[in-house]
Amino acid sequence: MVSNPIRVTSLAGEFIKSVIKPGDIVVDATAGTGQDTLLLAECTGASGCVYAFDIQEEALKIIQDKLVIKGVESFVTLIHQGHETMKEVLESKGVMNNTVKAIVFNLGYLPGGDHRVATSGTTTLMALDGALKLLAPQGIITVCLYPGHSEGLRESEKVLNWCESLEKPFVAHHFQTLNRKLPPTLVIIQRMR
């Protein structure tokens, strides 16, 4: 029996684990505390390649320490840039379109960090546009949305509207708790071919 509600980040992790395998190229677009980065590194292994983006140096230092403790730092590249630069940065590193198996977004602000430093709808949509081009066939994008604060609500609405406009070969799903006001929600975007 489940004693606590299922977190959207845990649900996203289950989808990620079902898609990626050792050797895949994957991206944590908003690395934050590094939980998703670690999951990606553990799933892709030493033969894979994980790119983790964050605009806060503080977050990247926390992640680096976690990676070292787990012994996976050698196959993770930490990038001190915003997620809106993802496509250009990865292209400069030789990552081609249609080759990234999973891209993870956990929007909002760094837990325990400065809440004034947060993702925004404008940069997130830029990042998602780039992510679609990078995504491999049968790959997924996970997006955890946090509409419980004003900027998060605006960002969530922009992301959901953007998702509704997606055409083939992409399919977008939206998972949410129905009996809570403005709960965190999860979007999964699949590339079918």
Score class of each variant (00 low, 15 high):
S47I: 01
R116K: 14
F53Y: 07
V143L: 10
S92T: 11
Y51W: 15
V26F: 13
L90K: 10
P111G: 04
T85D: 05
I140H: 06
T99N: 02
I103N: 09
V26S: 14
H80E: 07
Y109W: 10
I20S: 07
S120F: 00
I69F: 08
G108K: 01
L38Q: 03
M126S: 12
V95P: 04
K87E: 10
T44L: 07
Q138T: 09
G34M: 13
E91K: 15
K101P: 07
V26R: 15
H83Q: 05
H80W: 10
L128H: 09
I103A: 12
D114K: 00
E91I: 03
D129I: 05
K70G: 09
F15M: 05
D28S: 14
I79E: 08
L145P: 11
V104Q: 09
P22K: 06
D54I: 10
G23D: 03
G113C: 04
T85H: 09
L40G: 11
A31Y: 06
V95K: 13
L125H: 03
V76D: 08
I20P: 08
I140R: 12
K66S: 12
D36I: 05
S120W: 00
D54G: 13
L135A: 03
L107W: 07
F15Y: 15
K66F: 02
E73P: 12
P111I: 01
C49L: 08
E88I: 09
P111R: 00
L125A: 08
S47L: 12
T33D: 11
V68R: 15
K70P: 08
P111C: 03
G23W: 00
A41L: 08
A127D: 03
E88D: 13
R116E: 06
E88A: 14
V100Y: 12
I55W: 01
C43Q: 14
V26H: 12
V27A: 08
V72D: 02
A131I: 03
C49F: 02
L132N: 01
L38F: 03
G112M: 02
T30W: 02
L67M: 11
E84G: 13
I20M: 10
H80K: 15
K61Q: 15
H115D: 00
L110P: 02
I16Y: 10
G121L: 02
S74T: 11
C49G: 05
F75R: 15
V143G: 05
L125M: 10
V26K: 11
K93Q: 13
F75P: 06
Q64S: 14
L125D: 08
I25T: 12
P22L: 01
L132Q: 03
G34Y: 10
G139N: 04
F75T: 09
D36S: 12
T99M: 05
A131Q: 09
D24S: 05
K101M: 15
I79A: 05
G34L: 12
K21Q: 13
K87C: 01
G32I: 02
L78A: 08
E73H: 15
V117C: 00
T33N: 15
I140P: 07
V95F: 07
I79F: 08
Y51K: 12
G108M: 04
K87M: 01
K21T: 04
T124Q: 09
G112N: 05
E42D: 14
T33R: 06
L110M: 07
V76Y: 07
K66D: 03
V89H: 09
C49I: 00
L67Y: 08
